[in-house]
């Protein structure tokens, strides 16, 4: 995997290739597989995301009882055409909630990059496909873009809440989704990288503070934030706006912020929302029951 978005962009320019093609070529080289195999595997991931979205069960609650049914609520609200954000963003939020809840309810999802943040990338991509009618092949290319960005983040920094807080999970997912969304709208490699950087910048410092240590509260709803920020960042990039701090330096900043984060807000469930009186009460209730 590439260790630098700058290098990835240079490669795309030098070889006159699209961002996704550079990521794919690197994958084929690393795993010693033909392009066709790599593409089929990535496409299977996209189709699995689609399937996971379609098999959301609006009646389910998680085993802890902390999450469930919000995706259905959001869907009904969007159907009534009352959202402040309009129908498209409404669908994005609905899908993010649904995927996060499906994960909490032990349904099948695609980790992207993690299970906790699994709603961000599909919420953005599936909603864009539904409204604009992109083919599954184009969506697979977009997923390569997301994977390439995530790969750089994983190499330069980290993608787990335990190592770097939620900025490393939902922040990374948002960054990946932003690049993928910009790509679908025709952004070049540099605009993709800047879209990714602007999403990450907007979520820098986000802590990981799950109530009772479970991937439920606040994780499910944070997927909404990740998806909405991704789209805003993609729009900025498409408007020609560039991150003043270069993309690779933004990722490095995420790493150093993560390293400086106290352990109580790195997935231990001991700080932040988990340490609120209500969070503690939920935890006590769950450990007794």
């Amino acid at each position: 995997m590439y260790q630098s978005l700058g290098e990835l962009c240079r490669k795309a320019e030098e070889e006159k290739k699209s961002f996704w093609e550079v990521v794919q070529a690197d994958d084929c080289r690393e795993r010693q597989i033909p392009e066709k195999t790599s593409f089929a595997q990535m496409k299977a991931m996209y189709l699995a995301m689609k399937e996971a979205d379609a098999s959301y069960d609006p009646k389910l609650y998680s085993r802890s009882g902390l999450t469930g049914r919000d995706g259905g609520k959001m869907q009904r609200y969007v159907d009534r055409e009352e959202t402040i954000c309009g129908p498209f963003l409404g669908r994005v939020m609905e899908k993010a909630l649904k995927m996060g809840e499906s994960n909490a309810c032990m349904k099948r999802i695609v980790a992207a990059p993690t299970a906790g943040a699994c709603g961000v990338v599909p919420a953005v991509l599936l909603a864009m496909q539904e409204t604009a009618g992109y083919s599954d092949e184009e969506m697979t290319q977009a997923l390569y873009v997301a994977a390439g960005i995530g790969g750089v983040i994983a190499s330069r920094a980290f993608i787990s809440g335990a190592q770097g807080g939620c900025q490393a999970e939902v922040g990374s997912a948002s960054s990946m989704a932003a690049g993928a969304a910009a790509f679908l709208r025709g952004a070049d490699a540099s605009a993709i990288a800047h879209g990714a950087a602007m999403a990450m910048k907007n979520l820098l410092g986000l802590v990981c503070d799950p109530v009772a240590g479970l991937v439920e509260v606040p994780c499910v709803k944070r997927n909404v934030a990740g998806a909405v920020v991704a789209l805003a960042a993609a729009d900025m990039a498409l408007a020609g706006i560039r991150s003043k701090i270069p993309p690779d330096e933004v990722i490095d900043a995420m790493r150093s912020v993560g390293q400086d984060m106290p352990v109580c807000v790195r997935e231990t469930g001991e700080g932040g929302l988990a340490a609120t009186p209500s969070g503690e009460r939920m935890k006590d209730y769950l450990t007794q029951g």
Binding site: A104, K107, I109, P113, A115, G148
Partner: peptide, 21 residues
Amino acid sequence: MNILDIIGPVMVGPSSSHTAG
């Protein structure tokens, strides 16, 4: 680690470490 560890695995939730692992 490769890009299918970034997008993927397909797994039953809720946690890659506590459930999939």
